[in-house]
């Protein structure tokens, strides 16, 4: 007849937290790292709500709401930062950022080759927005100009 105990929710929360941490530690895609961090927050939220229920007041739930707010802020700023990082290196790989190592350390580069994957069928693509479709012979200068300029400056 006993209902689900507090302990069980706490265990679920802790497991979510630990799984998120593994994701954060092991994955190299910045976005997945961030998703993992959000999952850790979910684990904490489960704990807080469970304690809220357990103690019979709403402090835990209120705190969870604030976690929600902070997570939203964090997502906004983090995504902006990720976009900036992506613009610099044209990649989301976090391992590209290891300049802050000891000066005489060699950078860590993965050498194990990736397995050859079968060529994927190219998915059909729409014309990107903002560019007028043009005959392949004459490339409009204005539309190309901005793009190349941006690329050049980004290498400076």
């Amino acid at each position: 007849m006993t209902p689900v105990y507090l302990e069980h929710y706490l265990l679920v929360g802790a497991a979510l937290f630990a799984l998120g941490m593994i994701g954060f530690l092991a994955r190299r895609n910045l976005i997945i790292m961030f998703l993992s961090a959000e999952m850790m927050l979910q684990g904490v939220a489960v704990n807080l709500v469970a304690f809220s229920r357990y103690r019979g007041n709403l402090g835990g739930q209120a705190l969870t709401l604030f976690i929600l707010t902070v997570a939203a802020c964090e997502a906004a700023v983090a995504l902006a930062l990720i976009l900036m990082l992506y613009r610099r290196r044209k990649s989301l790989d976090v391992s590209l950022w290891q300049e802050l190592r000891e000066p005489d350390q060699e950078p860590i580069v993965d050498e194990e080759p990736l397995p050859k994957r079968p060529e994927e069928e190219p998915s059909p693509r729409l014309t990107p927005a903002g560019r007028t479709p043009s005959p392949p012979t004459a490339v409009p200068q204005g539309a190309r100009g901005d793009h190349t300029q941006e690329q050049e400056t980004s290498h400076v």
Partner: peptide, 17 residues
């Protein structure tokens, strides 16, 4: 200790965890 300071954030985080 020096090899630990390899500049990879995740490596530091692993040690912390």
């Amino acid at each position: 200790l020096r090899p630990v300071q390899n500049g990879l954030v995740q490596f530091y985080a692993i040690l912390m965890a």
